Amino acid sequence: MNIGLYFGSFNPIHVGHLIIANHIIEHSDLDKIWFVVSPHNPLKPASSLLNEYNRLHLVELAIQDNPKFRASNIEFNLPKPSYTIDTLTYLQEKFPLEKFSVIMGSDSYQNLPRWKNYEQLLKQYRILVYERPQYPVSNKLSEQTVVLQAPMLDISSTFIRQQIKENKSIKYLVKDEVIAYIKDSRYYL
């Protein structure tokens, strides 16, 4: 089975994430996409993150109606901070029959040389890159890089958290089930 790994903080997950994932599953040979909730991205500050189990639950709520999507907590029990190459090595050992690809935005793709063992990542795994505005992919770092033109919305989790703090609506930015849970749990206030 071809599985795309969509890594992220998902703090919180929003419709932009879902649109990208849906576009990629429909325009690639992937059978499933796993939303890999990262407990801590080594390139981002941890202080603004909601607890990883709460973020995982929000992802589960957001994708529950799509059988091609799965929420993954695989990095929760791995050493922190999480490095993509270590997660992939672990997944290959645990699921030797699966073929894994990494899904990322072109902004992250341009930062790839800063990642741990990025040469190994490029050599062993296919990278599915969705282009973001202001981050064109002018040169591919490997032959296994596939560039996709996914629809882009100028939405960020940072903006959504700010809206919540200011007691403003996040309707249409995140799924209704996620809004209800965030509101009931008083997240991001």
Results as ranks from 00 to 15, higher is better:
residue 111 N to P: 05
residue 159 F to I: 14
residue 39 P to Y: 07
residue 77 N to I: 14
residue 71 A to R: 04
residue 139 N to A: 15
residue 105 G to A: 04
residue 126 R to N: 10
residue 99 K to I: 02
residue 120 Q to C: 01
residue 85 I to R: 06
residue 144 Q to T: 15
residue 53 Y to M: 08
residue 115 W to T: 01
residue 113 P to N: 02
residue 50 L to I: 01
residue 68 K to V: 11
residue 98 E to Y: 02
residue 97 L to E: 02
residue 55 R to Q: 04
residue 107 D to M: 07
residue 76 F to P: 01
residue 130 Y to K: 03
residue 119 E to N: 10
residue 48 S to E: 10
residue 48 S to Y: 03
residue 144 Q to P: 10
residue 51 N to K: 04
residue 155 I to D: 01
residue 33 I to Q: 03
residue 168 K to H: 14
residue 43 L to I: 05
residue 35 F to K: 05
residue 108 S to N: 13
residue 63 I to R: 06
residue 130 Y to P: 05
residue 157 S to V: 02
residue 138 S to V: 15
residue 122 L to Y: 12
residue 38 S to D: 07
residue 138 S to L: 15
residue 94 K to L: 14
residue 159 F to V: 14
residue 169 S to N: 12
residue 127 I to W: 04
residue 138 S to R: 15
residue 70 R to T: 10
residue 61 L to S: 05
residue 120 Q to H: 09
residue 111 N to S: 13
residue 96 P to V: 03
residue 116 K to G: 02
residue 167 N to V: 13
residue 74 I to K: 11
residue 81 P to V: 03
residue 161 R to W: 06
residue 103 I to V: 11
residue 156 S to W: 07
residue 77 N to F: 13
residue 138 S to T: 15
residue 66 N to A: 11
residue 166 E to M: 12
residue 129 V to H: 02
residue 164 I to L: 08
residue 130 Y to D: 07
residue 120 Q to P: 01
residue 169 S to F: 11
residue 151 P to M: 03
residue 101 S to T: 01
residue 164 I to A: 06
residue 141 L to M: 14
residue 99 K to M: 00
residue 140 K to L: 14
residue 142 S to T: 12
residue 99 K to G: 00
residue 161 R to T: 04
residue 70 R to I: 09
residue 123 K to T: 10
residue 134 Q to E: 13
residue 39 P to A: 10
residue 152 M to A: 09
residue 118 Y to V: 03
residue 94 K to V: 12
residue 71 A to G: 08
residue 73 N to Q: 06
residue 168 K to R: 15
residue 82 S to W: 08
residue 102 V to C: 05
residue 76 F to T: 05
residue 137 V to H: 00
residue 135 Y to M: 09
residue 149 Q to E: 12
residue 153 L to R: 08
residue 62 A to K: 08
residue 59 V to K: 03
residue 54 N to H: 04
residue 85 I to C: 03
residue 73 N to E: 04
residue 152 M to I: 11
residue 40 H to I: 10
residue 104 M to P: 05
residue 122 L to I: 09
residue 44 K to S: 01
residue 31 D to F: 09
residue 97 L to W: 00
residue 110 Q to V: 09
residue 85 I to Q: 05
residue 150 A to H: 05
residue 69 F to D: 09
residue 90 Y to E: 13
